[in-house]
Design a protein around this nucleic acid. Structure first.
Lengths: 146, 146
DNA sequence: GGTATACTCTACTATTATAATAGAGATTAT
DNA sequence: ATAATCTCTATTATAATAGTAGAGTATACC
């Protein structure tokens, strides 16, 4: 698995929307500025997230994006897998793989499967509500340090 | 993390050498044939593995490659990290990363760190002796099935 | 109804990593 | 000497990634 910029940006954007989930829609521009993401790139990512059912949009003036579901109902794993594809460290782990002749006799495949499973166990057990809370703690902790 | 062909080939090659660890050196040609790896590509990989201290070579006639250490003393994680680089799913997890301005306030980094740790826990706990045994079981089981 | 503000959609492009391929050179057993 | 083998450097094709560009569509508000 490799988290791309696209995936990283998607996560940060969902988090950004989650932190505004009470107020109205947030514009692409604001989201881009907040997370330091190139605007035109973020446009594409948001359209993608919309197709994935993670966000909704409002057009025209006073438009913008908002979460389609509550932060507590969006898992980190869902988002990153939707955007960056399956999290397997190597393709042969996936279903229906035909690339290798002796796939059923491959010890390595079992190992990479275990890696996949342990990764999934982590990322599918964190919601954006969890992340939101952690984030607030991190930032307030930093304020008190100063 | 992403396991490349290079990394996958390296692991299969070490396993191939481990299974011949009693007899003499094995030629690149034999190794390539056994694991279905392009010869010229394998040449490069083996030179790399030699620099990494995993294998030794004998030149000239009756030459070839052999393991530099016992299979029980080579860990899967060592090899794959040497060949494919660090196993972090995203660069910001690594030491001395400077790409992100607010790295210390990033919740996601902590998550990817956990993923890295759980992956390492798996791959650093398997030696090529373990893999060798598992492989024999897999193959003999298949024979009995038929 | 015009206009500013926002999202929507498709096409294009630069850079980099990956996965090889090619060929000449060096070493050693016989 | 020579055949077999490893050694080293350069080159290349393909694909993924990370954007950039620009024209189009919808909506609130005056």
């Amino acid at each position: 698995m490799r988290i791309t910029y696209r995936g990283d940006y998607a996560l940060k954007t969902i988090l950004g929307l989650a932190s505004h989930s009470q107020s109205g829609p947030v514009t692409i521009n604001e989201l881009a500025k907040q997370a330091d993401i190139p605007i035109k790139f973020l446009e594409q990512i948001l359209l993608d997230l919309k197709r994935g059912g993670f966000v909704e949009s409002r057009r025209g003036k006073v438009g913008g994006y908002l979460l389609a579901r509550k932060p507590s109902e969006i898992k980190l794993g869902e988002v990153i897998k939707f955007v960056d594809g399956p999290i397997e460290p190597i393709a042969c782990v996936g279903r229906g793989y035909k690339g290798c002749s002796d796939i059923n006799r491959c010890v390595f495949r079992d190992i990479w499967r275990k890696v996949s499973e342990s990764t999934n166990r982590i990322i599918d057990n964190i919601t954006f509500e969890d992340i939101l809370k952690k984030n607030k703690n991190l930032n307030s902790a930093l304020v008190y340090q100063i």
